[in-house]
Design a protein around this nucleic acid. Sequence first.
DNA 1: CTCATTTGTTATCATTTGATAACTAAATAT
DNA 2: ATATTTAGTTATCAAATGATAACAAATGAG
Lengths: 143, 143
Amino acid sequence: MDKGKLFQQFVRFTTSVHQVTNDMTKEIKIENITTVQYKILEFITVSQPVTLSEISECLHLSLPNSSRELKKLIQSQLCEKIIDPNDRRKFDIRLTEKGTALMNEVFQQLELKFQERINHLTESELEEMEEAIQILQTKFLDR
Amino acid sequence: MDKGKLFQQFVRFTTSVHQVTNDMTKEIKIENITTVQYKILEFITVSQPVTLSEISECLHLSLPNSSRELKKLIQSQLCEKIIDPNDRRKFDIRLTEKGTALMNEVFQQLELKFQERINHLTESELEEMEEAIQILQTKFLDR
DNA sequence: CTCATTTGTTATCATTTGATAACTAAATAT
DNA sequence: ATATTTAGTTATCAAATGATAACAAATGAG
């Protein structure tokens, strides 16, 4: 296998993924939420409960800046802290009901766009696609 | 096929792709180049020659802002305008030699990280992976 | 018990990015 | 030939993001 060629394909592939997800999320505008705040919300949604350090590390934000942005999200009542009884410096962060409702809406919109994008595919193509995602997830992404 | 489930997998998948590429590009710091400017460079690298409007559209930047950032890249002599003789309002943008050299370095670093990430895979797993990328590219991404 | 480390906070400042208005020059349409 | 549209520029302002210093409180190690 020509690993150089595979790398080329990988670059093209990741570029495409970024482009497509960019296009899909582009129009989703939530009032009083900035891009970084949305990324934080998305991260919490997918990974909750999370700590502030995890947000900081995974999103490549400094702890002070993460703290600042989280504060705004908490003020908007989209998420909340749940103090860890075992280590009171730490706390888990979760979406509130309001935050959950918001993210459900967002994901519903995204799902619509996703469905549009796949609705020309046959049943067997969908299965191929699922398998392809599975392979990349296990062989390459989850490490 | 449960399309809702496929969507869930898709979300997880795109999140992972973002995370991995984020981690791979994280340490790549080029002097006097901001994040947006790097994205522009990357876009030019992959798609050159491009017009300013294409940069603007694909990267979701306004034309004035694209113009401003491109100007800085040109001042740094990383790319150059080539005026279209057929329509002198337009111009193609290409990397200069300096820009090409820089991006070659960057991509070489990226390729190293990529190789690290795949070097535990067997030959047949690599082929599976290539095939998976191919499927997603043709069935879902290229539209 | 004391000191170092971990986890997060607050404040502040610089830089980057986004948005918009007013503009030019070339091309196209009527 | 004039008007309109297209492609890009310049200037300016506001907002978001990044970086850093100084801090506090809880935990852990010796």
